[in-house]
């Protein structure tokens, strides 16, 4: 099988998505054998930033004209573009701080990458799951996308037979409105879901809003929690 050519670019973010790929320690040797990096600065000094690639992974939101230019150039040279992580998908935590253009610094409010380019696949989460990277990189050379079943985090909590933090412990858990795929990682250690994988399709926001408000949170707090991974007020 020919090597899968790959670029992994990073814009406004924390490097966590790139680090999570390097955190696949057990699979890295196998990945090294099947992947050719053309632009993955955290890991490789090999040149190739201008070569065509089969897949471009993108971490981070877009908040400067230079980042936008780089993203457009990356889209040009990539057959498929994959948005990775909450910042690329929604603007992420960054979007909570910046609300206007900053002429002096030449920045604008952090934007999700799909606002500017076609996105062929996404890997959600802050941080993303290793298994999502591995499934994607295994499927691509075989000419397909990984299969996935999308439901709310609550379903995974049920499967793991976790105690319900929302109903039983009356804590403001966002499991009911959040995309699954993390195997309910946080509720499984007794921590409420903060919604880092973004909103599940057909989320029942009104109902969750009501449940959270009933838990004693002020309306403003409920909004803030629901907003954390939705791109602030611009989502």
């Amino acid at each position: 099988m020919a090597a899968l050519t790959l670029a992994f670019a990073r814009y406004t973010s924390c490097s966590g998505c790139q680090l999570m790929l390097v955190n696949c320690e057990e699979q890295l040797a196998a990945l090294a054998g099947m992947v050719d990096c053309h632009g993955f600065d955290l890991v490789s000094s090999a040149p190739g930033d201008d070569l065509a690639v089969a897949v471009a992974l993108v971490e981070g939101s877009i908040s400067t004209p230079a980042e936008l230019e780089a993203l457009l150039a990356l889209r040009e040279r990539a057959e498929f573009l994959v948005a990775v992580g909450a910042c690329a998908l929604s603007g992420g935590i960054n979007a909570l701080a910046v609300t206007g253009r900053d002429e002096a610094r030449g920045t604008f409010p952090p934007q999700p990458v799909r606002r500017f380019v076609r996105v062929d696949w996404d890997i959600p989460g802050c941080p993303p799951e290793r298994s999502d990277f591995l499934a994607l990189l295994a499927a691509l050379p075989r000419g397909g996308w990984p299969g996935r079943l999308e439901c709310a985090v609550c379903m995974e909590c049920r499967i793991r037979e976790n105690r319900c933090l929302l109903l039983e412990d009356r804590l403001p858990c966002l499991g009911p409105v959040t995309r699954s795929g993390c195997l309910a990682r946080c509720p499984s250690v007794g921590v409420i879901c903060e919604g880092c994988r973004g909103e599940v399709a057909e989320a029942h926001r009104d109902e969750v809003f009501r449940l959270l408000a009933e838990r004693g949170l002020a309306v403003r707090e409920v909004r803030r929690r629901l907003e954390r991974f939705r791109g602030g007020s611009h989502g």
Binding site: G16, P127, E194
Partner: peptide, 16 residues
């Protein structure tokens, strides 16, 4: 609780 952005430590201690 997870490798990046840990969730187990909380204000006042840890969850588990």
């Amino acid at each position: 609780g997870r490798v990046i952005h840990p969730v187990n430590p909380v204000l006042g201690g840890v969850m588990r």
